[in-house]
């Protein structure tokens, strides 16, 4: 684009400014986790790693982490199966109501979190009479994770077209054999990326979780939230927060390597 030099410079400066706005608060949390002061004191009083070892020993944080991983793994598996099926159906077939189906898939994330949360909580408790627990959280999370898998899978399906599958069918392979030997291998990296995003989405979710978890289940976000307003827990919460920031580099790095860059962008929730 033929932008003038000055415009380019201004845009560059604004970009740097916005990125600064994005990263400054995150850096603050990481720095604060090494701060000797118990509060958010700025500038920091001194350097200590004692909060990190205190957090490592924190029983509550550990078991919450385990719960979160369990929930995220289970809902990712469900989302992978359902998302792939929906993508295959929408890509291969042209049928009445196709638009409605694709709208239905984004609906759980397009609708405000409190709505999905209260709708599912109401269905579980008032309508079906199920006790809220780990499984209800998994059902809720899987519902809004389907879309990330679906987006990745359908982008890949569109790109690869149907020629190889047709060839496989022509050579006598049945629908299942073709899926196992042709479609699945071609989809693999897209599914890995979608599954990774689903995992991260579930791992981080708190709003729908607070509605569907009941009293017994504590995921990591719920643990952080319930300890946020307790001053004596502040340093440990800070460390957990800092650790999560540092860890968030991991899924994005992996997703970027697994899928083509276009899909990586398109699938970001």
């Amino acid at each position: 684009m033929n932008l003038s030099r000055r415009t380019r410079r201004v845009l560059g400066a604004l970009t740097a400014l916005v990125l600064g706005f994005v990263y400054l608060p995150l850096m603050l949390v990481v720095i604060n986790s090494f701060n000797t002061s118990r509060t958010f004191g700025w500038p920091p009083d001194g350097f200590t790693t004692s909060w990190w070892s205190a957090a490592w020993r924190s029983e509550g944080a550990r078991s919450a982490l385990l719960t979160s991983v369990q929930v995220a793994l289970l809902s990712t598996v469900v989302a992978l199966v359902l998302g792939t099926m929906a993508a295959l159906a929408l890509h291969r077939f042209d049928f009445f109501g196709r638009d409605v189906v694709s709208l239905l898939i984004i609906l759980p994330i397009a609708l405000p979190g409190v709505v999905t949360g209260i709708a599912l909580a109401n269905a579980f408790t008032t309508m079906i009479g199920v006790k809220l627990g780990l499984l209800t959280v998994v059902v809720a999370h899987a519902t809004f994770c389907i879309v990330t898998v679906f987006n990745n899978a359908i982008a890949r399906l569109r790109r690869m077209g149907g020629n190889l599958e047709e060839a496989s069918m022509d050579l006598g392979a049945g629908a299942f054999t073709t899926f196992r030997l042709i479609t699945l291998p071609m989809l693999r990296s897209a599914l890995l990326a979608g599954g990774l995003l689903a995992f991260a989405l579930s791992f981080d979710e708190i709003i729908v979780t607070t509605f569907t978890a009941g009293a017994g289940v504590q995921t990591l976000p719920i643990w952080i939230f319930s300890n946020l307003f307790r001053p004596n827990q502040a340093p440990v919460v800070n460390v957990v927060a800092a650790a999560l920031i540092l860890l968030s580099v991991l899924p994005i790095w992996l997703a970027q390597r697994l899928a083509g860059s276009d899909e990586g962008v398109a699938s970001s929730r």
Binding site: D204, P221, A241, I245, P251, I252, G264, S268
Partner: peptide, 10 residues
Amino acid sequence: LTPLWASYLV
């Protein structure tokens, strides 16, 4: 993209 995957709560 990276901060998108840093925890919302954090």
